[in-house]
Write a protein that binds this DNA or RNA. Structure first.
Lengths: 224, 224
DNA sequence: CCGTATCCAATAAGATACTG
DNA sequence: CAGTATCTTATTGGATACGG
């Protein structure tokens, strides 16, 4: 008799969902694919171009990035936009709801920080570092400390403002700031999280404030 | 000339990591594979057997479940244990660190609850429903309301205790309780989240407390 | 019954080349 | 630069079959 295995009926043709009403399962259908959350991470501080995303996501291939962006767009997490002239380039930006995924990134990252398998020597993007400042900031360590720092990481500038026990991190130039850090993302991470001496990064402005600033982001103890 | 494509050097042979020092990327390497977080979900209220996991994860195949459990075990999130005699069966349980992933599940689920694509008609496990109560509980709606409910979902019994603006959900029999709900997980979800009438589920004990109880878990508004 | 191991077909991911 | 096309490899799911 002939083999008919190729004609087997499949209950869910074409889709590979979890078939589970749990919100968690649905979340994984939205952003559970490989690279999806890292793409969202790169969009958290504002619109990005395709090539920038590709550069900062080490090892992603163009077709996978294009597919992820298309999926995230059709799910309502990402939107294509055109930057106003004279730039007029196409960019990808997170929608409102997409930006609401920020706590997800924070909780995941914070949880993983306790992992004994974590390798901090790998490359890291400027978005990752600045987002980690937002995530790992500890209000109790800050007390009533106040400072505004400017961070020149490669060709992107961020602004981090500590005030009233909160931190606000965003892209752009501050109107004024107490100090300016100029470094590669990995160097900054080394100083804040790796115990590297602060002169591993260039600091202009109020060095004392900067020294205090970098102590506000404690790493949790490793689990093993 | 001969094709030598199969001998291409691959920079990360055998592993498919993200090559990214970001904590988020590492989190995804730990629990980013398909099914991994859903397996963790099923372990959040205590040890489970292989067959129970397979039953409550709709559509997972035995080999994938076995592989996920093995990976989670070697990463320190899951541990094999043997239930004490007379049961003496092997179970899987979350480690301390694995249990610390609970907030991750909560944040993800809560975020996804705003999705317009969510289909609540799919099957749902008892763990999912009880975990969602923990997640979606709104302290402000509770005020100083106090109640202890027993939930018989299939062959598993849970206990949910609302007190001092907090909720505690766990497996087991309560010493005493105000009401007992007997239902399938989907029916309970329908009453709590779907606006189904409360008589869709069986309630013994204090009906008034139970009616109030099921109002403490508001769904966020859909995003589109 | 409790898993494990193995095979196979379908998909997703990765590498690379190429086009407007 | 911004993707698409194509091809290769890896992972997944489904169906058994197997050992305790």
């Amino acid at each position: 008799m002939q083999l008919e295995k190729t004609t087997k009926p499949r209950q869910k043709e074409g889709k590979r969902g979890y078939g589970d009403a749990c919100g968690l399962a649905h979340a994984l259908e939205l952003i559970g694919e490989r690279w999806a959350l890292l793409v969202m991470r790169e969009l958290m501080f504002g619109p990005r171009r395709f090539s920038g995303l590709k550069r900062d996501l080490p090892g992603i291939s163009a077709n996978v990035l294009a597919q992820r962006l298309a999926e995230l767009e059709e799910r309502g997490l990402v939107r294509r936009a055109k930057l106003p002239p004279p730039a007029s380039v196409q960019v990808y930006e997170a929608t409102e709801w997409g930006l609401e995924a920020a706590p997800v990134l924070g909780v995941l990252g914070k949880w993983a920080a306790r992992s004994p398998l974590h390798d901090p020597s790998l490359p890291i993007s400027h978005v990752s570092v600045m987002l980690s400042l937002q995530t790992m900031f500890e209000a109790e360590l800050a007390g009533d400390f106040e400072a505004t720092g400017r961070f020149r990481l490669g060709d992107v500038t961020y602004l981090a403002e500590v005030r009233e026990g909160r931190i606000d991190v965003r892209r752009g130039e501050p109107g004024q700031c107490d100090f300016t850090v100029t470094a590669e993302p990995a160097q900054l991470a080394g100083v804040v999280y790796g115990g590297a001496p602060i002169d591993a990064i260039r600091i202009d402005g109020d060095l004392a404030l900067a020294k205090r600033f970098v102590t506000l982001f404690p790493l949790p103890s490793k689990v093993a």
